[in-house]
Amino acid sequence: MANIISDETIAYVGVLAQLELSEEEREQARSDMSRMLAYIDKMGELDTTGVEPMSHVFPVQNVFREDVVTNEDMREQILLNAPEERDGMFVAPRTFE
């Protein structure tokens, strides 16, 4: 199944993962991923027909609580971590020309 990793697939994964990859990195990623997937394909040996996929070990359903604010206003401390900040807001690069 290793042949599924085409140039298009790697480019697509780069888009999904939001990672800019150099030509070398793309090649490396393709070889790493092909190897890993060939190994992961071992799961195919198991018959899992009718097995309910288990995302959680315990049957915990949605846990609800009242939406009450318990923390104080931390805007200033939070903005200290921002790469760029202006007038109490995060600054992002221009999105539209």
Partner: peptide, 30 residues
């Protein structure tokens, strides 16, 4: 980290989700 993010993006992508991610959750149940 990039290697795992890419692998994760791939196994969750449409077309491969059932074969990999869902399958893994079934194996986890077993």
């Amino acid at each position: 980290v990039k290697r795992r993010i890419m692998l994760g993006s791939f196994v969750l992508s449409s077309g491969y989700y059932d074969a990999y991610y869902l399958k893994a959750l079934q194996v986890k149940a077993l």
